[in-house]
Design a protein around this nucleic acid. Structure first.
Length: 482
RNA sequence: GGCCCGUUGGUCAAGCGGCUAAGACACCGCCCUUUCACGGCGGAGACAUGAGUUCGAUUCUCGUACGGGUCACCA
């Protein structure tokens, strides 16, 4: 029974943060590399923050990136239920058990008293902590209040002195004075557990062996150790990972508009590229390779590669990596992805496969596509200054001269395809004894009206066809004459 | 503020007492080339800081600075 079992335990807040996704990824890799199980658990004990449909977002995202769970709310398993609100009775039972074991106690303080206490403590410059008012209530007093139906919480009974040491794989042993630890609430008035308690109970009951979670839990970790000790349970292996930052000061947040997985998908990023990129934030593989598929990530993943310092999210690097993934796609696959984007600005009857082929090496994010192909349907009006190109040694005069020579050549072509176009134009270039660009630059400008195009004069001419090419040539020549 | 944690080029990062301190993105230059890309070659750029330990510190210890986390009946 040494199977590795890890879990991803998000709160249903309506979207899946990139940082959460990365935690899930690391968690998944640890389990899968060890041939173990990856479990999904929904932590919805805060009813006030519950967002309708949020669970579906989590399922959808995890499935989209390929992080399939072996046990979870919708797939079942032997340790269910996997949604915390459905485990309500379990927490109550264990909280009461902990009271019996001496690791917790009933507290009847109401929120007004607590608020007052906190205000006084803050005013006098003391760290706000529960004053343990109910810690030493006699069993009779407790029973009387309970019988009277007084609302209560159950709090952790932290030792008054001594120290607690907990172990993290990355940080090693961390020891704190028990006197700095608060008697935190374990079971809330509404009967639901707090995160800290639910985690301990669930991780134990579900047989979780490794816990990967955000660094924000590091400070409360010793309290977990105390809880495990009080129950007499074995602690899982803890791995606290640092945050993903927007910059040195700020975490990557929802408000930045690009903190959620779905935002990136909507912007034209590939799922595989996103996963690959975030894997490299706060973790580094052994060798120098950095392109990894999910199966390769599982193979390569090792806890020792995790970093203890925060990583700043670099949109530029994600973009570059996305470009790499796009280039690695088969032409057919890329065309499939690209078509809807091409169609946004290019409605005509063109050879989509040919356009896609030109686009593939020039696209880092799919959303860049519409602007690149907006001239196929209709030539934009353009500035004649485009004909002036120092490197090509072209200007308005040379352009007229060249275009007038090219026009009849094109008119004579009957079999309009790349090879014929290429041969015809290069014959002309040979006859004229000049550089390729001297001819091809003005032609490209004349039929595209753009400074940059995917593909050159020949590619563009082939795609828009003979009639359109000739018509654009004539129009441009006309413009140049005036 | 108390407690906990971190600090290698602009960014991601390798490094685990002795190296000309990797690599990637970005940047610059050159080449390829019918534009732009792609691809190829090359360049600039870093161990926060002060002590200590040591024959020798980026690497170990302490202080300082800076940054982060946490101090809820939120997770």
């Amino acid at each position: 029974m040494n199977e590795v079992r890890t879990r991803f335990a998000p709160s249903p807040t309506g979207y899946l943060h990139i940082g959460g996704l990365r935690t899930a990824l690391f968690t998944y890799c640890i389990a899968k590399k060890a041939g173990g199980k990856f479990i999904l658990r929904i932590e919805d004990t805060d009813q006030e923050r519950y967002v309708e449909g949020a669970n579906e977002v989590i399922y959808r995202t995890l499935r989209a990136v390929g992080l399939d769970w072996d046990e979870g709310p919708d797939v079942g398993g032997n340790y269910g239920p996997y949604i915390q609100t459905e485990r309500r009775g379990i927490y109550k039972e264990y909280a009461e058990k902990l009271v019996e074991l001496g690791g917790a106690y009933y507290c009847f303080c109401d929120k007004e008293r607590l608020a007052e206490l906190k205000a006084v403590q803050e005013a006098s410059g003391v760290n706000p902590m529960y004053d343990r008012h109910c810690r030493n209530l006699s069993p009779e007093e407790v029973k009387a209040k309970l019988d009277a139906g007084t609302p209560y919480v159950i709090r952790q009974k932290v030792p008054l002195d001594g120290t607690t040491t907990f172990h993290d794989v990355l940080y090693g042993d961390i020891t704190v004075e028990n006197s700095t630890l608060d008697d935190q609430v374990l079971l809330k008035t509404d009967g639901l557990p707090t995160y800290n308690f639910a985690n301990v109970v669930d991780d134990h009951l579900m047989g979780i062996t490794h816990v990967v979670r955000g660094n924000e839990y590091l400070a409360s970790a010793p309290k977990y150790t105390l809880l495990y000790e009080a129950f007499g349970w074995e602690e899982p292996v803890y791995i606290h990972v640092e945050h993903i930052m927007r910059d040195k000061q700020h975490k990557l947040s929802k408000r930045d508009g690009d903190a959620s997985y779905e935002d990136f998908i909507n912007k034209g990023y590939l799922s595989e590229a996103i996963v690959n990129y975030i894997a490299l934030l706060g973790w580094s593989p052994k060798g120098e390779r950095e392109i990894f598929s999910l199966p390769e990530l599982i193979e390569e993943f090792d806890i020792s590669g995790l970093s203890k310092s925060p990583a700043i999210f670099d949109p530029l690097k994600l973009k570059a990596m996305n470009g790499e993934y796009i280039r690695a796609l088969s032409p057919e696959k890329f065309a499939e992805y690209a078509e809807p984007y091409i169609r946004q600005t290019c409605k005509g009857d063109f050879d989509i496969a040919k356009i896609a082929a030109l686009l593939q090496p020039r696209t880092e994010v799919l959303s860049e596509i519409p602007d690149q192909v907006d001239f196929f349907d209709e030539m934009p009006s353009y500035d004649l200054a485009l004909y002036e190109n120092k490197k090509m040694k072209t200007n308005l005069e040379t352009a007229i001269e060249v275009l007038e020579k090219v026009l009849p050549v094109l008119e004579n072509i009957t079999d309009w395809n790349f090879d014929v176009l290429h041969d015809s134009l290069f014959n002309l270039i040979g006859e004229m004894g000049i550089k390729n660009g001297y001819v091809l630059w003005p032609v490209r400008v004349a039929i595209s009206g753009k400074q940059f195009t995917p593909g050159g004069a020949i590619e563009v001419a082939e795609i828009i066809g003979k009639d359109e090419t000739l018509s654009r040539m004539k129009r441009s020549i006309e413009m140049l004459r005036n």
